[in-house]
């Protein structure tokens, strides 16, 4: 795909998404967004534009095929935590740890809705700090699919990766005697022919959309590549170029 072709893409909006509620969300959108966004969106908008606007160099930022990513539709999360349960069950995550979590933000002075849930997981960054700092290459960026993987055999348990991760996505698994983290269900599902991560499959509100950013007909790709839509990443200042994107509506 070329940049030119991308610019010619029809903006199909969120109509592509199997979502009956989009219009209502959009109507509501701006009123809430302004209040809820606080510093976060304002702070990231510029960086998102820079990294993900439709310029030529941006296309080079999906070096993997497939290039897995996730879109979180933040306002749809209701903290039912089915994703967490599905993740724990699928990936044998012990009770003391988690690969994905849901954070809660409350703005008592916000209009209409004062509460918001924010799902978080490994962002499978393009410039993963965890991979850079690991002394033994126990964690690495998989060349096949861009997933940040763990090789538990090599993990010495220095926990530097945990320190380096700006997303608190890692924990030490006492059973594996190694750091454990989200692998987009590669081992448990994708590598066995599965198409979705356990969390995305379990979500009753389609708050998590799993996709392949390298394909321009992919739902995640389409949403991320809409100039008019506010799409952001968490902690952009950490400079890790994450592959988990957030939006509302």
């Amino acid at each position: 795909m070329t940049a030119l072709k991308f610019d010619n893409l029809k903006n199909e909006g969120i109509e592509n998404l199997p979502d009956r509620q989009r219009r209502n969300f959009l109507k509501l959108g701006f009123a809430i967004t302004g209040v809820f966004a606080g510093g976060t969106i304002l702070a990231v908008t510029s960086s998102v534009r820079r990294s993900f606007a439709s310029s030529g160099d941006f296309l080079a930022q999906y070096p993997y095929k497939p290039h897995y990513g996730m879109l979180i539709r933040q306002d749809r999360c209701i903290d039912c935590e089915r994703c967490k349960q599905a993740c724990a069950k699928t990936n044998h995550v012990p009770a003391y740890g988690y690969r994905t979590d849901i954070l809660e933000r409350v703005r008592p002075d916000a209009e209409g809705q004062q509460r918001e849930f924010i799902p978080v997981l490994c962002n499978h960054c393009n410039l993963p700090q965890c991979v850079r700092v690991c002394p033994t290459r126990a964690t690495y960026k998989d060349r096949r699919n861009g997933i940040v993987m763990m090789n538990p055999k090599k993990c010495i348990g220095c926990l530097t990766c945990q320190m380096a991760c700006p997303y608190n996505a890692r924990y030490f698994n006492e059973e594996k005697m190694a750091v454990d983290k989200c692998d987009f269900c590669w081992e448990a599902r994708l590598d066995r022919g599965g198409k979705l991560t356990a969390c995305a499959a379990a979500c009753p509100a389609q708050a998590r959309i799993f996709g392949d950013l390298s394909r321009d007909d992919d739902p995640v790709h389409r949403v991320v590549h809409q100039i008019g839509r506010t799409v952001w990443v968490l902690r952009p200042e950490a400079g890790t170029k994450p592959n988990v994107f957030y939006t509302r509506g």
């Binding site: 509620q21 109507k27 209701i78 903290d79 809660e104 809705q113 509460r115 509100a205």
Partner: peptide, 21 residues
């Protein structure tokens, strides 16, 4: 329904307090 009160298809987390709540 969106006219009497806000639609049940919007503002999810107003009523959904989640596992945390």
């Amino acid at each position: 329904d969106g006219s009497t009160a806000f639609s049940s298809e919007t503002r999810c987390a107003v009523c959904h307090e989640g596992v945390k709540g």
